[in-house]
């Protein structure tokens, strides 16, 4: 009896593996999009920028996301130099506004400005804006590889017109969790940056990388983004994501 029970379990596991193995690249990408594009979230994050010369700058921010990352708001809370600066991203990052309380001015960023570094970090605006792999890239499954001991799917992503400005991205995603673990950014054959996810935990049923390291492979600088607090599937009012709200102090 026990044997037959074990057999059923093994059979079920075997079926699952076989099912996973038979996933098409499109199904895998859709699963990654589903995992990473959550309904809503609020988080407190810390960003540690280390320059190529070894100097460090630390920033903290509060972020709100809604509608599967379609709407995002980042508010810098420290240090005092940038406190109150806000970044609003709508339409999957197609529209980005920057607000600074120093001049009480809201500025709409043109597409080219999305290549600019955010507050001197190694993240560009286009790296932190939302988006959907299926919509913003054409993709090709290159195979499977282990990344820090985890079995991953390896994809080549070529940005479409709605995607970022990079020539291509190589993405590794956890085969079980369908969560991105690493991205290499290329321009066009030269690797520019590497994003590495670490400290993966499950919060409110969502797999979350609590540490993201963006390494600039050109100049040796790096930026770590750490999640200090996070909540998922919370109710966030629509009015938070408006340019009118940016001026609220």
């Amino acid at each position: 009896m026990k044997k037959s029970g074990l057999f059923i379990i093994l059979l079920a596991l075997g079926y699952q593996r076989a099912a996973a193995q038979t996933l098409t690249p499109q199904e895998i990408i859709r699963k990654i999009d589903t995992t990473e594009r959550v309904a809503s979230s609020w988080s407190v994050m810390r960003q540690i920028i280390t320059t190529s010369g070894g100097k460090k700058r630390t920033l903290e921010m509060e972020t709100w996301m809604r509608d599967r990352n379609d709407k995002q708001l980042m508010v810098y809370t420290a240090p005092k130099r940038v406190k109150g600066d806000k970044i609003l991203m709508l339409n999957d990052g197609d529209d980005i506004w920057f607000y600074t309380p120093k001049t009480d001015r809201v500025r709409h960023l043109a597409s080219h400005a999305k290549k600019q570094k955010v507050q001197g970090s190694d993240f560009a605006y286009e790296d932190i804006s939302g988006g959907e792999i299926e919509k913003d890239y054409t993709y090709q499954l290159l195979g499977e590889e282990k990344i820090v001991g985890v079995d991953c799917y390896k994809f080549e992503l070529i940005p479409t017109a709605s995607g970022p400005s990079y020539a291509k991205l190589i993405l590794w995603a956890d085969k079980e969790k369908f969560l991105t673990l690493r991205i290499d950014y290329y321009e066009p054959d030269e690797i520019l940056k590497r994003l590495q996810m670490d400290d993966i935990r499950q919060i409110d049923g969502h797999w979350t990388a609590f540490k993201m390291l963006m390494k600039n492979l050109q100049d040796g600088g790096e930026t770590i983004m750490e999640i200090l607090k996070i909540k998922y599937d919370i109710k966030i009012a629509d009015k938070i994501f408006t340019t009118k709200n940016l001026k609220r102090r």
């Binding site: 320059t51 010369g53 100097k55 700058r57 001197g120 970090s121 600088g221």
Partner: peptide, 8 residues
């Protein structure tokens, strides 16, 4: 013209 010589 503006050019980020480094992060700082």
């Amino acid at each position: 013209q503006r050019y980020p010589v480094s992060e700082l």
